[in-house]
Amino acid sequence: MKKIIVDDKLIEHLLSLANIEIERDQFEKFKVQIQRILDYIAMLDELNTEGVPPMFSGIECPSTLRLDITQDGLSLTSAIQNAPAEKEGLFEIPKVID
């Protein structure tokens, strides 16, 4: 893992990927903190992990799937009861096509 330099460009790229904005005064703080965290994480380089199968779950057993039987889900009223904006039973968002 080559040394990662956390600069303005990298933070801006990540913010854009994550659809996140941060306040200007937080930007510099985050840059320093994330650099420190990545420097710490670089300790993993000490280990040779060639051929080690990655572990992606807390338990490695086959999933216990339920029977493929149709069941009722949430009613329309329940599904939209928390919608910030709703129109005729649909979630309403700003116009995306001109």
């Binding site: 993993l44 280990l47 080690v52």
Partner: peptide, 9 residues
């Protein structure tokens, strides 16, 4: 991926 491998170790 590296982290997931060390997780296995």
């Amino acid at each position: 991926k590296k982290a997931s491998q060390v997780r296995r170790l």
